[in-house]
Structures are given as C-alpha cells and as structure tokens.
C-alpha cells in the first residue's frame, strides 16, 4: 500500500517549471532514494513531500489523504505527526543540549520525556553525550542526534535531505546503518542525495532531471 503518492504534480515559479508533471509512489516500509543534479527539482519535491510547500498542480496523497490543498497550519500538523526530518546541515538548536534537542521534537509533537529521549540517543550510540551542547559534538555526532530527533515521535515517514552530505565516510556508514535499522523496523525512508553510494543503500532510486522523473532504478543488491 502506498504511503505517499505524488500524482502529476507541477511546481511553477514564474516561467520556471521546477517540477513538471511528476508522479511517484512510495510504499509503506519502502526505502527510496531521490537523486539528481542541482536544479533537477529535488529540493522542490522534498519541500512538497515535507509539507513545507504546495504543488501548483496535481495531488499529493499521504496515507491516502490529499494534502495538496491544505492550509499552512494543517500542513504543519501533518508534518509534526507523520514526518521525521533529517537535514544536511544537522540544524540543532545551538543553546540546547543533545537530549534537549531531541526533546524539542517531543515538545511540539506531544509531551517531552527525557527518559525516552535518552533512549533514542542510546539508539544512535550517544547516550553518554546527552548533556553536550552541539558545539561540543562532532558533525557525525550531531547528525546522529538529528536521527534520534527524527525518530523520537515514531513518524510514518522519515525524510532525509542529503543526510551524509557533510559527513566523512565513517560517519556516513554509521548513519546508513541507522537507516538500515529503521528500515528493518518498518519505517518508510525517503533520502534525497546526490551521492550514488547513499542512493545504492536504498531499495529504489528515483532520478530527477529538469523537473521530471528521468528513470527509476531498483537496487538489486539491496539487503545483501
């Protein structure tokens, strides 16, 4: 069953068609990578999937509900309830500790629970660093905190924007391993990347070019 379905969506900025009649489908529990050079429409698609933007045309079905015409406020609610976000530049609240950063996500979602937040940090191997400020953490550690933050509310979809773009190989592998774990637990993952290695870790890769889906590649080596 499709968790996310984009039906003939277009996004038009003046004369520019950032997305041009794109249709994709992501099933529940699936791990999909979205690739493409800059200007291919990746970011626009990411914004739309992340409920931060609306298409000019077409439908976006999330969990069977069309969210393409929803108000900004409603989109915020949907994003909070269903989507966990991971960013290229980590984005942590600089004056809050690691565990507090995880709790911020809980705070907006439902109730802050320090114990649960610590557990999530434990899952990414950072329980010992819970009381550290972002400035005291390495890039890899920060991104792991962000993964913990993204999964703390058990979202149906984790949307990662170049999650390893700013990481070295060792840390990239740690993050990818975490994704594998999440995938094995049944979490749906959409990873936007330009890194073929990261894309190869996914089950399927959708390649965008000039605002259109250029091709889709099934990773036959997945799980091996």
């Amino acid at each position: 069953m499709a968790l996310l379905e984009l039906k003939n969506i277009s996004k038009i900025y003046g004369d520019l068609k950032a997305l041009d009649n794109v249709s994709i489908k992501v099933d529940k529990g699936e791990w999909v990578a979205i690739m493409g050079p800059s200007g291919s429409g990746k970011s626009t698609m990411m914004n739309i999937i992340g409920c931060m933007d609306k298409p000019s045309m077409g439908e976006v079905l999330l969990d069977g509900v069309d969210i393409s015409k929803e108000s900004q406020k409603k989109l915020t609610d949907i994003r909070r309830d269903k989507i966990g976000l991971i960013f290229q530049q980590f984005h942590m609240v600089t004056y809050l500790t690691a565990v507090e950063n995880v709790m911020v996500s809980q705070y907006y979602h439902s109730m802050p629970d320090e114990e649960e937040a610590l557990e999530a940090l434990g899952r990414v191997g950072l329980r010992e660093r819970a009381k550290h400020l972002p400035s005291q953490l390495s890039g890899g550690e920060q991104q792991r905190v962000c993964v913990a933050r993204a999964l703390i509310n058990h979202p149906e979809l984790i949307l990662a924007d170049e999650p390893t773009g700013n990481l070295d190989e060792a840390n990239e592998n740690i993050v990818l391993d975490l994704f594998r774990q999440l995938h094995n637990e049944g979490t749906t993952l959409i990873v936007v990347t330009h890194d073929p290695e990261v894309a190869e870790a996914a089950q399927r890769t959708i390649v965008l070019e000039h605002g259109r889906v250029a091709r889709e590649v099934i990773n036959e080596n997945f799980g091996k």
Binding site: M52, K73, T76, R80, L85, H91, V93, V104, Y108
Partner: peptide, 16 residues
C-alpha cells in the same frame, strides 16, 4: 532565523 525555521519544520505552530 534558522533555529525558528527548524522549530517550524519540527512541527512548531505559529502559536508556539
């Protein structure tokens, strides 16, 4: 700005 954007991305309403 970035922090506010992050909070909103994490689901903070305008009210929050």
């Amino acid at each position: 700005r970035r922090e506010i954007g992050l909070r909103k991305a994490l689901g903070a309403s305008d009210q929050s």
